[in-house]
Design a protein around this nucleic acid. Structure first.
Lengths: 212, 212
DNA sequence: AATAGAAGCGGGGTGAAGTCCGGTTATGCT
DNA sequence: AGCATAACCGGACTTCACCCCGCTTCTATT
């Protein structure tokens, strides 16, 4: 009976409603596009009240963030325990490059939702900034060991990797960036990383398999 | 009497109103904070109709973009014809570093407005993406001559430079990023740039003064 | 200077995000 | 099982960005 034992697990009906809302949201998303998904519409179509929607997700962007989270989890799974170029087992530089390319593809594939999850006044939208950024930080720490401020570098490379998709590439009203851009962005990422780690005599990293 | 000689310069009253709106907006901004500046409030306080405000600026974000533009112009002035570390006359790498530091300071100084100029669904807010990015592209072209895709690199470094201020650094509800971050971000930028251009035997750039 | 016509102006209207609070229902304890 | 409580639910309410269209004012022409 401690005051903070646990916050009393989610009630059954609440959970059911959350599932339902997520499902309907995904439906409306593919059917009408992100722009047309409104809170009122979602609530009505789910047969629930608007208050419920807001309590569950806090804000409109929150819905899209929740939608992303599911796929994000799957993505992290690949990264954390998938096959080597991306998963553990390759040297950090190779993983870094593979990670960037995979992330670009992921962002591109979820472009509409990612952008909808962007909300003025709120932090970074994708990946909760923790999972993706944590992983990037870890890889950078191994691939570029003698950097003075690892946190700042992580921030900057995060932005370099995700920013173009999230912000810059969406100019001009084209609703979706063309798929060709993926390749160019991925190549650019590889060049960037290779230049960053270039001429390290023997970065202690050809060793692999030291559990992640 | 050609149909498209010129779009018939802005009418005098319209110009007067624009000035007035900009002034009042700046007032409200320092007085109430960006969050509290509403279109209705602005119109009323300026003694004008709401429709007028929207015709002049198109959107709420447009006001803040217009506000930024003035200072942005002054900033570009420094960059294009100021004293050497930042202006022309130093080698590209030095200018690149100076530019990044100056840009970080600029963004930080205009943090509230920059964020308010951010609007979901629109391109990158600050600097119209053209001026700042064009300059960056030029410097990069000289400092890192053998890069395969200069446009992509520009995009990525733009994001690395501006992203942390605009997106990542604003997490956690702290309304303003602490000033100490400027130094760290600036140092980070310098490290990034130096690593990118590192070990160029003699990048044809110690020569200076070839007009910009 | 008078006039025609375009550009600018105003403020009410609409739709959607987010808030509030009274009623309802699940959960923990006895 | 019965009850107290806290979480949940619903939908009306508020606020704000943005639209619309008839009216006014400026500017180019004669």
């Amino acid at each position: 009976m401690v005051p903070f034992g646990k916050p009393r697990a989610e009630r059954a009906d609440a959970a059911r409603n959350r599932e339902r809302l997520l499902g309907v949201a995904r439906e409306m998303l593919t059917e009408l596009g992100a722009e047309q998904v409104t809170m009122d519409g979602l609530a009505e179509r789910a047969g629930l009240g608007k208050g419920t929607v807001f309590r569950r997700f806090g804000t409109r962007a929150g819905i899209f963030r929740a939608l992303l989270d599911a796929d994000e989890r799957a993505f992290q799974e690949q990264v954390l325990s998938g096959p080597p170029p991306l998963g553990p087992g390759a040297d950090p530089v190779a993983r870094l490059i593979a990670y960037g390319r995979a992330r670009i593809t992921f962002l591109h594939r979820h472009f509409a939702v990612s952008r909808a999850a962007l909300d003025r006044g709120q932090p970074v939208p994708v990946g909760d900034a923790s999972l993706s950024q944590l992983h990037l930080r870890m890889l950078l720490g191994r691939a570029v060991p003698d950097v003075p401020d690892l946190d700042v570098l992580t921030l900057q490379l995060s932005a370099a990797l995700e920013g173009p998709l999230l912000l810059y590439l969406s100019m001009g009203g084209s609703p979706d960036p063309p798929p060709e851009a993926d390749g160019a962005l991925g190549d650019g990422w590889q060049v960037l990383v290779e230049r960053l780690v270039r001429d390290r005599p023997g970065h202690a990293a050809t060793r692999t398999g030291t559990g992640d």
